[in-house]
Amino acid sequence: MKNNLVTTLTKNRNLIIQLTKRDILSKYKGSLLGIIWSILNPLFMLVIYTLVFGEIFQSKWGRSGTESTFVFGLILFTGMIVYNIFSEVLSRSTSIIQSNVNYVKKIIFPLEILSPILVLTALFNGLISLVILIIMSVCLGIHLSWSILLIPVVLLPLILLSTGLGWFLAAVSVFFKDANYIVTILLQVALFLSPVFYSVEIVPDYLRFIYNYNPLGILIEQMREIILWGELPNWNEWLSVTLVSLVILVAGYYFFRRLKGAFADVI
């Protein structure tokens, strides 16, 4: 197919890279420290998580309940890294078309690449946080296993899922102006229905089904397993999430293409 998903992405890969660089740099344009903020922000959040949940609330993780305050902060930080990548893409997707009206008017511009650009930008921020996480883990004496090499594998379904949902939201938000408010609420719900601030092990059995079918929650747990606990992910769960994410990716792409012809008439 002439305009299938793979062809669109490969054909415009250089444009995607250039626009991603511009998107990353524009975020810090005019600030005193510039892109250094991409390092300071996650460091600041790591300190906050450790202080609030470890010291003030004296929280313990369900896995053993014996982690130090600093390790507990790393556990929370790992969950937030995965969630923030997902959240950043979806929250920005609701305004990505409206923010690039000049591209909408250009017939030859491939609007489909806007969602992958958001994903790459979110991944850039997420990878910086992951580097900080790994460095802090080493400093705190956590033994890193070779399983850490599986980070790209665990990130793959997250990338597919975020991109697909990004296409859906980008298209819908053009015609439904309240999409931004609804997505904001849903992302908050997703935050508390995912094991970011608590372990799945402490969830009552009658509510466990929510987490068994929550792709985001599964990926958060798997990221902790491969980085902090040196374990392999559950491959059956990973495969299921990846297949579902792939379906959403393809469906989101063709849904976007189906509606994009009417964007110029609505904006």
Rank of each mutant, 00 (worst) to 15 (best):
109 F>Q: 03
89 V>W: 07
96 I>P: 02
112 E>V: 09
110 P>V: 12
105 K>G: 00
93 S>Y: 00
95 S>P: 05
97 I>N: 01
86 F>L: 01
92 R>S: 14
103 Y>Q: 00
115 S>F: 03
96 I>Q: 06
113 I>N: 11
95 S>I: 11
101 V>W: 00
88 E>K: 13
115 S>Q: 10
96 I>D: 04
102 N>I: 02
105 K>F: 09
96 I>G: 07
87 S>P: 12
90 L>S: 01
89 V>E: 06
96 I>A: 05
89 V>L: 06
95 S>D: 11
115 S>P: 10
96 I>T: 10
87 S>Y: 10
99 S>G: 15
92 R>T: 10
111 L>H: 09
96 I>N: 05
107 I>W: 08
89 V>A: 05
112 E>P: 14
105 K>Y: 08
94 T>F: 08
100 N>C: 04
96 I>K: 05
100 N>K: 03
87 S>L: 09
88 E>Y: 10
114 L>H: 06
106 K>T: 04
87 S>D: 14
107 I>P: 01
91 S>Y: 08
88 E>H: 12
101 V>K: 06
108 I>H: 15
110 P>L: 13
86 F>R: 02
93 S>Q: 05
110 P>C: 13
98 Q>W: 11
102 N>W: 07
103 Y>N: 00
106 K>Q: 13
92 R>W: 06
115 S>Y: 05
108 I>K: 15
111 L>K: 10
99 S>E: 11
105 K>N: 06
105 K>Q: 10
115 S>T: 14
100 N>G: 02
111 L>G: 09
113 I>V: 14
93 S>H: 03
98 Q>V: 11
109 F>T: 06
97 I>G: 01
115 S>R: 06
111 L>N: 09
89 V>M: 04
87 S>M: 12
104 V>C: 01
107 I>L: 13
104 V>Y: 00
107 I>Y: 13
90 L>V: 03
106 K>R: 14
91 S>P: 12
90 L>K: 01
101 V>M: 04
96 I>C: 04
109 F>G: 02
96 I>E: 08
93 S>T: 04
110 P>G: 13
110 P>Q: 14
89 V>Y: 07
115 S>W: 04
108 I>D: 15
104 V>M: 01
100 N>W: 00
108 I>W: 14
113 I>F: 08
98 Q>G: 13
97 I>P: 02
108 I>C: 10
109 F>N: 02
112 E>Q: 15
99 S>D: 12
87 S>H: 15
115 S>G: 04
115 S>A: 15
93 S>E: 03
105 K>H: 05
92 R>I: 05
113 I>C: 11
106 K>W: 03
111 L>Y: 08
94 T>Q: 06
113 I>Q: 12
103 Y>D: 01
114 L>K: 03
100 N>R: 03
114 L>E: 02
98 Q>P: 05
107 I>T: 14
88 E>Q: 15
88 E>V: 06
88 E>W: 05
88 E>G: 10
94 T>N: 07
107 I>G: 11
98 Q>L: 15
109 F>S: 04
112 E>F: 09
103 Y>S: 00
98 Q>I: 12
108 I>P: 09
112 E>H: 14
104 V>S: 00
112 E>N: 14
88 E>C: 08
107 I>D: 10
94 T>C: 10
88 E>R: 11
92 R>L: 12
93 S>K: 03
99 S>Q: 12
115 S>E: 08
111 L>V: 06
109 F>L: 07
102 N>Q: 12
106 K>I: 04
114 L>R: 03
99 S>R: 11
97 I>Q: 02
101 V>H: 00
100 N>M: 01
